[in-house]
C-alpha cells in the first residue's frame, strides 16, 4: 500500500469521527444559547451571592475579605432577622391561602353554566383589572383607601362601625394584614384565571356520569373537581409561595417595614442590610438563608402533596 493510499484510509475514520461528533453535538449547539443565558443570568449571580456570603466587603477600598461562617453565625443572634422571618411566613401563608380561596371561589362561579357567556366574560374582564395595575399604582390606591381620612375610614365611620379612624398602616396589629389584603387584591386574578383554566379542562363527561350515578353538587366537587384540580393547585400555590416569600415592593412603598418592624419582611431586610447599610456580605448571607429556607419549605410542601396524591393513586403532571 502506498503512503498516499495509507493516508487516505486513515483520513476516512477521522472524517467519520468528525461527522459523528458534529451529529452528536448538534443538539448541544442548539441549546447552547439558552444554557449560556441561564449561566449568565442565574447561575453566576447565585454563585456570586453564595461566595459573597462568606466575605466582608470594604466598599471604599474595594477589597473582599474571607470571613468564613461569621456572617452565618451572626444570623442566629439577629432578632430583627427572625422578626422578619416571622412576618414573611405570616405574609406568605395568608396571601397564598387567600389567593387560592378567593381565586378558587370566583373561578368556580365563572365556570358555572347557568351564567350567560356574556355575563361570564364581562365579569372575568372586570375581575382581572387589579392584575393590570402596577404594584406602585396599587400601593398608591390602597394608601389612599387606608388613609385616616380615606374612603375606607369614611365608610367605617359613617356606617357606625368605627368611632374613630382605623389606623390600617399605623397600627402594628393591622399593618401586616393590610399589606396582605393589597397583595391579595393585586394578584388574585392570576390565580383565578389559572384555576378557571384548570376547571374548564375537566371532561364534562365525568360530571354527567356522576350525575347519572346520583352524586350531588358537593360530592361532585369533592370527588371530581378537587382531585382533578390538584395538579393545578399544586403548581400555582408553589409559584405563589415562591413569589410571595420574596415580596419587597409593597413594604417599601407603603410602610417601610413599620410601624415598629411589624411589616418588615426578609426581602426588605436584605435590601436594608445589603443596599442601604452597604453590608453586602451579611446581606448575601441572609439571601442564601432565605433561598435555603424557601427551598426546604417548597420541597416539604411538594412532598406532602405528592404523598397525598400517591395515596389517592393519582399522578402529578403539572410540575
Amino acid at each position: 500500500m502506498t503512503t498516499r493510499a495509507r493516508a487516505s484510509t486513515m483520513a476516512v475514520p477521522a472524517q467519520r469521527r468528525l461527522q459523528s461528533w458534529i451529529k452528536q453535538s448538534r443538539g448541544y449547539l442548539f441549546i447552547a444559547p439558552a444554557v449560556i443565558f441561564l449561566l449568565v443570568v442565574m447561575v453566576y449571580p447565585l454563585a456570586n451571592v453564595f461566595v459573597t456570603s462568606f466575605t466582608q466587603i470594604d466598599t471604599r477600598e474595594r477589597t473582599q475579605e474571607y470571613v468564613g461562617l461569621d456572617n452565618y453565625a451572626a444570623l442566629l443572634d439577629d432578632s430583627t432577622l427572625w422578626n422578619s422571618v416571622r412576618n414573611t411566613v405570616i405574609f406568605t401563608a395568608a396571601s397564598v391561602v387567600l389567593h387560592l380561596l378567593i381565586g378558587g371561589v370566583l373561578a368556580l362561579l365563572l365556570n358555572e353554566q347557568w351564567l350567560s357567556a356574556e355575563v361570564r366574560n364581562f365579569t372575568r374582564g372586570v375581575l382581572i383589572l387589579p392584575w393590570l395595575f402596577s404594584t406602585a399604582a396599587s400601593a398608591l390606591i390602597w394608601g389612599l383607601l387606608y388613609h385616616p381620612f380615606g374612603t375606607l375610614n369614611y365608610l367605617l365611620m359613617s356606617s357606625g362601625l368605627a368611632s374613630e379612624p382605623v389606623e390600617f398602616l399605623g397600627d402594628r396589629a393591622l399593618a401586616l394584614m393590610s399589606l396582605v389584603l393589597v397583595n391579595v387584591w393585586k394578584t388574585f386574578p392570576f390565580y383565578m384565571v389559572m384555576i378557571l383554566g384548570g376547571l374548564q379542562s375537566i371532561p364534562v363527561e365525568l360530571y354527567e356520569v356522576s350525575r347519572v350515578d346520583g352524586a350531588g353538587r358537593l360530592q361532585r366537587f369533592r370527588h371530581i373537581t378537587l382531585p382533578m384540580m390538584r395538579p393545578v393547585i399544586l403548581a400555582i400555590s408553589t409559584i405563589d409561595i415562591i413569589t410571595t416569600f420574596g415580596h419587597f415592593d409593597l413594604v417599601k412603598l407603603m410602610t417601610f417595614g413599620g410601624p415598629i418592624r411589624s411589616t418588615e419582611t426578609i426581602a426588605y431586610y436584605v435590601w436594608q442590610t445589603g443596599f442601604r447599610d452597604v453590608n453586602f456580605g451579611y446581606g448575601a448571607a441572609i439571601s442564601v438563608m432565605m433561598v435555603v429556607v424557601l427551598s426546604i419549605g417548597v420541597l416539604v410542601y411538594l412532598r406532602m402533596f405528592t404523598a397525598r396524591e400517591q395515596m389517592y393513586g393519582e399522578t402529578t403532571t403539572a410540575l
Binding site: 381620612f149 374613630e164 379612624p165 398602616l169 399605623g170 402594628r172 410602610t255 413599620g258
Partner: peptide, 21 residues
C-alpha cells in the same frame, strides 16, 4: 395629632399642611 402617626411620613404631613388638614 392626626391618627396614624406611627406610619406617617413627613411627605404626607406636608400634604396635610398644604391642603389645610
Amino acid at each position: 395629632a392626626v391618627p396614624g402617626s406611627l406610619a406617617e411620613t413627613h411627605t404626607s404631613t406636608r400634604e396635610y399642611f398644604s391642603t389645610g388638614r
